[in-house]
Design a protein around this nucleic acid. Structure first.
Lengths: 119, 119
DNA sequence: TACGATGTTCGACGAACGACGAAATTGCCG
DNA sequence: CGGCAATTTCGTCGTTCGTCGAACATCGTA
């Protein structure tokens, strides 16, 4: 039998008012993490292993931690799966328009001139 | 006599269409560089040494280079001074609303809860 | 109970980052 | 000409970053 209902430490999320802009910008300045955010905007919730990113599981786990501790996403445990979701409401309250603007910029970025020779 | 009218290599600026979002977000994820951007939004142009940041001149020069090569600012030489300006038009064309939204978020960030104990 | 699936933690590694001081460049001015 | 002021370049130091593999934990299920 499990020795306790909750053996793993609770997932740490910053409160909405404590989300730091520099942490958010740093979290969004990585292509792998940005891909996670982009996918997560289309779907309300998604399990960690189902993202179209090409990195090792441990690396992916690291990126989720960065996103979570910066306040960009929240994570919820269910069985041995971990579901992630964008903290759209908290983010909008703290930094109005930021997430939408950055995601719109991301769409522009992919049609930019450097996609031909830079990537 | 000077051996040439232009001895120093020309300052490299990315074209407006080549500005990369990840470079911009990374450039803005540092407090010193963000201070430069904030000051530069209030004034159209300013010499490098006149910014209210507390780092060594060589460090400051490094930050200006990061900002310039990411496309956030432009730099112009005049005598032995170098003037910096925000590339507001190019930025607005490439990523509409991004700069304004981030700077509005910065104002929010400074009145946040973490300013009491985190700074 | 044992296995497989899911995901994390723990080092390790090379690359990049932010910071500095020293030296060099450039141009103005006494 | 000879400083002085502004700024960059170079080398260095310590830290952080992104990545990986190996090991561990948890849960459902055969």
């Amino acid at each position: 039998m499990p020795r306790s209902t909750r053996r793993r430490p609770a997932l740490s999320h910053p409160a909405a008012e404590e989300i730091d802009l520099y942490d958010v910008l740093h979290a969004l300045s990585d292509p792998t993490r940005m891909t996670i955010v982009r996918v997560l905007r289309a779907e309300p919730e998604r399990a960690c292993g189902t993202f179209p990113v090409d990195v090792a599981p441990s690396t992916l786990s690291h990126h989720f931690k960065v996103l979570r501790e910066s306040g960009v996403i929240s994570q919820r445990e269910e069985a041995n799966r971990r579901f992630s979701a964008l903290r759209t409401v908290d983010l909008e309250r703290r930094f109005p328009g930021l997430l939408d603007t950055v995601l719109a910029a991301l769409a522009r970025n992919e049609t930019g001139a450097e996609a031909t020779w830079h990537g």
